[in-house]
Design a protein around this nucleic acid. Structure first.
Lengths: 342, 342
DNA sequence: CGTGGTATTGGAAGCGCTTCCACGTCGTGC
DNA sequence: GCACGACGTGGAAGCGCTTCCAATACCACG
C-alpha cells in the first residue's frame, strides 16, 4: 500500500503538496503538480479513503435504510437511487431492515463517519430516532415518509386508495372489498391505513357504506393475499371487486379467485397498488407509484443537501396514476374487456 | 460526537482501557469494565468506524461489484447476499457497473480500506484487474464467474443450454432456434456463448444440424428478444421452438409470438433461462439458476475467507434445474397442456 | 538597495481509534 | 521478608490523510 509520504518522497516534495495536488487545491505550481502527478502514476498511488474520511470528517458515502430489501417496490426505488448516484463521487451503503431490532441497531450504529447522508425509505422514524440521526449532522432525506423539517419525496396514499376505489365504483361496483397491511404493524407503516381511508372516502362519496366484513388486514405477502381473498370470496355475500393495497397481495388475490373457480374480471375485479413489473403480466389494474422516480429524486435531493448550497428542506409530492388493465370490468360483465395499457 | 477520550475521562480510566472494553479484549477487570460500560451508555458513545478502520487496517465492509444492477437476476443474487450478511457485522457497499469504464474505475479506486472483501458478480475480470485487486490483500469471491485460485460459485452454463434444448428435442422439435447475448459484448460475458455450446451439443446428440439462420444474437433486453424472435418467426422456415438465453429475452420472444398471431406453445415453444419471478407469470418453461442461493453462498464464502481460518479457495458448482411450465409442448400440439409447475 | 506583497512549499498537528510497551500492584513460593 | 510472575492499567505511537501555519523565494515598487 503506497502512502502519501512515499509519493512525496518520490516526487521530492512534502506530503502537504501531494495532498494539495490530489484535492486540486489551489496554490501548487504547474511544474510541481506535474511532477507529483507523475509520481502518483508511477507508484499507482490511491489515497486511503478511511484516512481521508477521518481527517476531513466525511466519507463520501451515502447510506440507504430500506425495509424489506426483498420487496419488489424497495428494489425499484433502489434502482432509482443507484441511477442518481451513478455520476456522483459517492458510494452507496445498504442498510436492510427486516425487523424493528435491525432498525434500532442501524439507528444506534449510524454516525457521521459511516455515511455523510442518509436516505430513509418508507420507514416512519420516531422522533427520538430522527433526533439522534440529526444530532450526528448527517443530511437526511425521506422517501415515502414524512417528517417536519426534513426534505421528503412522498405520494398521496389516501388519494391513491380513493382513485382505485372510485375506478371500481365508476364501473358500477357496490360491494367492494379492501385488503391492507396490518394497521398496527411493528414498523409503524401507515400507508396502507391511508389507502384504506381513501377507500372509505370514495365509498362515502358514492353513498356506499362499506361492509366491515369486507375490510381485511394481514402482512404484506402474496400468500396472505390469497388467504384474505379466499376469506372474502367464501363469505355469504362476496364482493364483486377488491381493492388491494399492494400488487403483491393482489397477485395472491388473483390466485384465490382462480382457486375458487371464479373468473376475473367477470366475477371479481381486482385493483392493486404499486405497478411493479408483475402487474403487467397479470394484467392487473393498479395505482402506479413512481417508485424508480422517487428513489432517484430522493438521491438527488440528498446530493443537493450535501452540496455547497443546501436548499431549504422541501416536500416533493409525486403523482399517482391509475393504470387500467384487464383485471377490472363492470360487475357481471360478460365479454372479455379489450385493450391493455402497458 | 463523543470520543473515546471523553469516555475514558468520564470513567476515570485511560483510553486504552475503553478500547479494550469495546473490543472485548481480555485483561480488563470486571469492575473497570462495568464502569466503562456505564460511561459509554451515559454518554451514548459510538466508536468512529473510520478511525477504527484506519487503525486496524480493515473496515468491516464488503463490496459487491454487480453489473447491471437493474437486471432482475442481479437483484435476486443481491438478495441472497443481503440475507447472508444479515447476521454478520459487515456493511455492504454496492458498486454498480453499467459500462466498462465503470468497471475500470471501480477496480482502480478499490483498495483495502474501502472494503475488506469483494464479491464480484458475473464479471469476468481480466488478469491484471484481478492482480491489482489481489495486491490490495482483499479477499475476493467470484459469483457466476471463475478464475484460477479464487473461490467461486458457478453453474454449468453449457449443461443448462443442453438441458433446455434436450427438453425441446424430447418433445419432438427439430427446428429449434437459439437467441443469445452478443458473443463479443464489451464486458466479456461468456455465459450466453456457453449456453449456445450446450444447445449445439444437444442438437448434435439428437442428430440435428442446427440451421445457422435460427441462431441469433443481441443485447440482453426484452425489446431485443421481441425483435430477434420476430426475425426468426418471419423467416421462410420458422422454428417450432426457441431456446432463449434469458427469461428477459424470452419474455420479448413471447410478445413477438403473440404479435405474429401465433399461439404458444401450439405453434411455437419457448424455453428461457434464469427462472426470475416473471417466468411464473408467463408460464415460461425455463432453466432455473439458483440466483438467490448463489449470492448467499458467495457472501458466506467471503465471510469465511475473512475469518480466522480462511479455507482453501474452492469452486462451488450449483445445480441447474429445468422447470417445465406451459410455454413448451410437442410441435403442433392441439390441446392446451395441463398442469403448471411453480 | 530596502520594503511589503504574493506565490509556493514543508511540515507539524490532529482526526479517533488500536496496540504495544512499560509500569505499578498484588499474590505466591521460597 | 524477598524475588518473581500475573494481572491491570495508562499512555505514547502510529494508522494515512488534511490543513493550517510558518518559512522561503521571488517580484515590483519607491
Amino acid at each position: 500500500m503506497v502512502t502519501i509520504r512515499e509519493v512525496a518522497a518520490h516526487a521530492g516534495v512534502g506530503a502537504g503538496t501531494v495532498s494539495r495536488v490530489i484535492n486540486e487545491s489551489a496554490g501548487v505550481s504547474p511544474t510541481t503538480r506535474a511532477r507529483v502527478l507523475e509520481s502518483i502514476a508511477t507508484l499507482q498511488y490511491r489515497p486511503n479513503p478511511l484516512a481521508r474520511g477521518l481527517s476531513r470528517g466525511r466519507c463520501q458515502t451515502i447510506g440507504v435504510i430500506v425495509p424489506f430489501f426483498t420487496q419488489a417496490s424497495a428494489i425499484e426505488r433502489l434502482r432509482g437511487v443507484v441511477a442518481a448516484l451513478g455520476g456522483s463521487r459517492y458510494d452507496l451503503v445498504l442498510f436492510d431492515v427486516e425487523t424493528p431490532e435491525h432498525r434500532a441497531e442501524h439507528v444506534a450504529t449510524l454516525n457521521r463517519q459511516r455515511a455523510d447522508g442518509l436516505l430513509v425509505m418508507s420507514l416512519p422514524l420516531a422522533d427520538d430516532e430522527l433526533a439522534r440521526i440529526m444530532a450526528t449532522g448527517m443530511a437526511v432525506v425521506l422517501v415515502d415518509a414524512q417528517h417536519e423539517g426534513l426534505p421528503a419525496v412522498v405520494t398521496d396514499d389516501t388519494e391513491g386508495g380513493r382513485m382505485a376505489t372510485e375506478h371500481l365504483v365508476d364501473l358500477g361496483h357496490r360491494r367492494i372489498g379492501f385488503m391492507g397491511d396490518d394497521p398496527d404493524n411493528e414498523f409503524g407503516f401507515n400507508s396502507s391505513a391511508l389507502r384504506e381511508t381513501g377507500y372509505r372516502v370514495a365509498m362515502a362519496d358514492a353513498g356506499i357504506t362499506p361492509d366491515e366484513a369486507l375490510v381485511l388486514h394481514g402482512p404484506h405477502e402474496r400468500g396472505v393475499g390469497t388467504e384474505l381473498a379466499g376469506q372474502l370470496l367464501s363469505g355469504p355475500e362476496p364482493p364483486t371487486a377488491i381493492v388491494c393495497c399492494s400488487d403483491v397481495q393482489a397477485a395472491g388475490a388473483i390466485e384465490a379467485i382462480r382457486a375458487a373457480g371464479l373468473r376475473m374480471p367477470q366475477d371479481v375485479s381486482v385493483v392493486g397498488f404499486d405497478d411493479i413489473e408483475m402487474a403487467t403480466h397479470l394484467g392487473l389494474t393498479t395505482v402506479r407509484r413512481p417508485l424508480f422516480h422517487s428513489g432517484q429524486l430522493g438521491a438527488r435531493l440528498l446530493l443537493e443537501a450535501l452540496g455547497v448550497h443546501p436548499p431549504e428542506p422541501q416536500v416533493h409530492e409525486l403523482d399517482l396514476e391509475l393504470v387500467t388493465r384487464t383485471s377490472t370490468a363492470p360487475p357481471g360483465a360478460t365479454s372479455e374487456p379489450q385493450g391493455e395499457t402497458t
